[in-house]
Amino acid sequence: MSDIEFAHLVRLSDDTGLHEHADGPLPRREHGYCLDDVARGLVVLHREPDLPADLAALAEHYLAFTAYAQAEDGRFHNRLSPDRRWLDEPGLGDWWGRALWGLGTTAARSTTPAIQRAALECFDRGAHHRPPSVRTMAFAALGAAEVLDADPLHASAAALLGDITSYIGRPRTDENWPWPEDRLFYANAALPEALIAAGDLLGSDEVRDDGLRLLDWLLTVESRDFHLSPVPTGGWFLGEPRPAFDQQPIEAAAMADACARAYQVTSDPAWLAGVHRAIAWFSGDNDLGSLMQDEQTGGCYDGLTPAGPNTNQGAESTLALLSTRQHLRTLLRSTG
């Protein structure tokens, strides 16, 4: 049985998938579902070492949703109406990248062979595409890393993961701004994490070290007084005011993921500081000293605004909290 509270994720879910939005703790059923969140759910659930029966059933619902969303050519729909009609055409947006991340994680970590095979078939169907967005590619690369870690001879996963370097490029020579983009946007830590994974699994010290350098810089600029201070939804560049709002839980979760991978690859305990800052952000060690989780429901607030938390508890934020708490559990077990 998991020691992490999944009650709110269950509350947001049904036999179709995962409701995207909430009004406080209650799912906004009229807003329907999106693959983006369902795929995140696959990642989180399959990171659990021993899924109880109810969560295993939930993971199978999420996998069925993801397979249903996939077109024959490997692209994916994203938005499903409450009456189960697709509201968009299949595409290669962030949801495609997150779908491959979720499918790769399921294929690598599920303990049910039939589920592994089904997830891998969907992954392989989509892995030949190359999206226009660097973040979309980074999410997909993290799924490829899961597959490749489980099967080092998996050709399409190796090709997908290897191509992340051409998307991100090398760090800039400017020590104040080595970031390969002109501005920080969202889920920023996924980019260096993808490089670290590619360098580690494909045997390139240069690519791994580029990722570590970018992550170290990112953790520095996204910290204030030794607590995490994520960039706002509008992005950030040097000289713009900080702290800035609204801050999103996905930023803390991405930082926890990336620093945990850096620690796994390097065994350098310095990376644990980033994981701890991300965990502490949810517990109130943030720019406003505000608790970002509802301890009664198990949900996470949707963002940190200048006036405090946005107390709606949607799927993206709740999954960000759950994934970060998974790193806390791993750290507690590994250090003590």
Rank of each mutant, 00 (worst) to 15 (best):
P90A: 11
N78R: 13
A159G: 11
S110H: 05
A69D: 06
H77G: 08
R79A: 15
T105S: 14
A157P: 03
N78D: 14
N78A: 13
T106C: 12
R130H: 14
D73E: 14
E72P: 10
A119R: 05
S81W: 08
P90G: 11
A114D: 13
R75G: 07
L120R: 12
D94N: 14
G74Y: 09
D151T: 10
A71P: 11
L148H: 04
E89I: 01
G74M: 08
H129D: 11
L103F: 04
A144P: 03
A114G: 06
G97D: 06
G97P: 07
A119L: 11
G91W: 03
R125P: 06
F139T: 00
R109W: 15
R125D: 05
A141Y: 01
G102D: 09
T105G: 03
E146T: 00
W101L: 03
S133V: 02
R117C: 04
G102A: 09
L103H: 03
A150V: 07
V147E: 01
T105W: 01
P82Q: 00
R79W: 14
A138E: 08
T111S: 13
T105Y: 03
A140D: 06
V147H: 02
A127K: 04
G93K: 05
R135C: 06
D83H: 10
A140I: 03
Q116W: 08
R84H: 11
M137K: 13
T66H: 08
A118Y: 08
S81R: 10
S110W: 03
P132Q: 13
P90E: 08
A67V: 15
A114E: 14
R117N: 06
A144G: 13
R130V: 07
A118F: 12
G126R: 03
G93T: 09
S81E: 06
T106S: 02
E89A: 14
C122D: 08
F139Y: 14
L153P: 00
N78P: 06
D149S: 14
M137D: 10
A157L: 03
A67I: 15
L92P: 01
T111C: 06
N78Y: 09
E89P: 00
A140H: 11
T106H: 04
P82H: 00
R109G: 06
H128P: 05
D149R: 13
A150H: 10
A107Y: 05
G74F: 08
L160D: 01
E121Y: 00
F76Y: 15
T66E: 05
A145P: 12
P132Y: 12
A114L: 09
A158M: 08
L148I: 00
Y68P: 00
L87A: 15
A140P: 07
D151C: 12
E121S: 12
R85Q: 15
T106V: 10
F123G: 01
S156Q: 15
L103Y: 01
T106G: 02
R135L: 15
L87R: 15
T106D: 01
D149Q: 13
L120E: 06
L92E: 07
G126V: 04
D88F: 12
G74H: 10
Y68W: 11
W95T: 09
V134T: 15
H154G: 05
L80P: 11
A69G: 10
A144W: 02
A107W: 04
D124F: 02
F123T: 07
S110T: 05
P82K: 00
